[in-house]
Nucleic acid binder design. Structure first.
Lengths: 215, 215
DNA sequence: TAGATTGTTAATCGATTAACAATC
DNA sequence: TAGATTGTTAATCGATTAACAATC
């Protein structure tokens, strides 16, 4: 349990939220014990892969028994850092910014939204579920003063890099980026992207896969 | 060029939208020629990987010269199926549904939104940029009648599977799913997921990576 | 032609799967 | 104890990188 997880591969990491979700479902169904084999059937990974994945972080199971759902859920929550809480701001209070602000699992898992920021004078001064929309000019100062840890970029791509620079200067540790651009940040800032159009294009590809065939 | 692309690995496919985006940027900057080496520097994949990737679909380059940006962009557009247009509906006209309805690259690349559907009587009858919000009870009939190809699920997770079943019965070919659940569909329907909370949890993990260390 | 850069094969690296001894 | 299932090593499979001959 006392190991450096920096060497666990991203392939494993990216599966963790899915384990987390399925374990939550099991808990909700009041199932408290699960084998890698049963989990495999539900989640679609091989049992072997599940055991390998979980073992990157410690021996959570018990031979002959399987895994204790609640314990495993709590461990994975901890690995994902969901036992802590985070201060966040959203930049860009348009449709997408508002959607994120209202996203249920956002609140549920300890992400605390302190404010939204926009350039649009019509939006500035309004509130989204009791949270103020501020002028984006005040962003840097606000982030510093309130020790904001995560900046969520929901702006058009043209200004995304500029916002990222401001966030970086104001010492955020992470950026959740929805703008369709690869923003550049120094090594001490972590960026996670949600590129919606890339996902849509993959769907488009898959729908056409069989057709491109004959030129 | 006359090959079955079904055997190209998903790892390659998932990089295509990124090539597409960078090539568009080059075109906008009026750069018409690029080598794998230069592209590598911009995009962050190795030059070797870029050449391998592109060669899965045909020899688009020229020895001693590199790639013609416009030609490559057009080819990748075609591979992604972006030369065609698609009819779509959005189910769930809340914040997220509305955000998607207004998403710029959505319109730009041939995805035609025919209607939104919701259960909320306050929303039914309203319009989002001239597009009607209908009662979700009318979904199945509407999809059949208008030959809708893609259903976009922006509902809470509780009803997502039911909506997916309706879409499947109404013969959509693809589903773009934003609900935090793995929906089940028959093999002839393609699903592409956007699991926002999974992405957020990864960010959370990365922020904590160094801390979990000492239990 | 000489220089540059692709297309493509071979080598390496990493991730997944299989197998089974350890053990609850 | 016997049965079940993990933890973990070894084998396989796939993806990335390196290298270079082909060729523009």
């Amino acid at each position: 349990m006392n190991r450096d997880y920096a060497d666990v591969s991203m392939a494993v990491i990216r599966r963790l939220p899915k384990y987390h979700r399925y374990l939550k479902d099991l808990l909700d169904k009041e199932i408290y014990r699960i084998s890698s084999r049963e989990l495999s059937r539900m989640i679609g990974f091989t049992a072997s892969q599940i055991r390998q994945d979980l073992n990157c972080f410690g021996g959570f199971g018990q031979q002959g028994y399987g895994y204790n759902v609640e314990e495993l859920y709590n461990e994975i929550s901890k690995i994902l850092g969901l036992h802590k809480s985070y201060t966040t701001v959203i930049i860009g209070a348009g449709n997408l910014g508002q959607a994120i602000a209202n996203y249920p699992s956002f609140m549920k898992y300890g992400f605390k939204l302190l404010g939204l920021f926009d350039v649009n004078p019509k939006l500035i001064g309004m509130k989204i579920r009791d949270i103020d929309i501020f002028d984006v000019d005040a962003l840097e100062e606000y982030v510093i003063k309130n020790n904001v840890e995560i900046g969520i970029i929901c702006t058009p791509k043209e200004v995304a890099q500029d916002i990222a620079d401001k966030l970086t200067r104001a010492n955020v540790s992470g950026i959740w980026n929805f703008a369709p651009i690869d923003i550049k940040v120094p090594g001490n800032v972590t960026v996670e992207n949600v590129h919606l159009s890339e996902s849509l294009f993959i769907l488009s590809y898959l729908l056409n896969e069989k057709e491109y065939l004959n030129k």
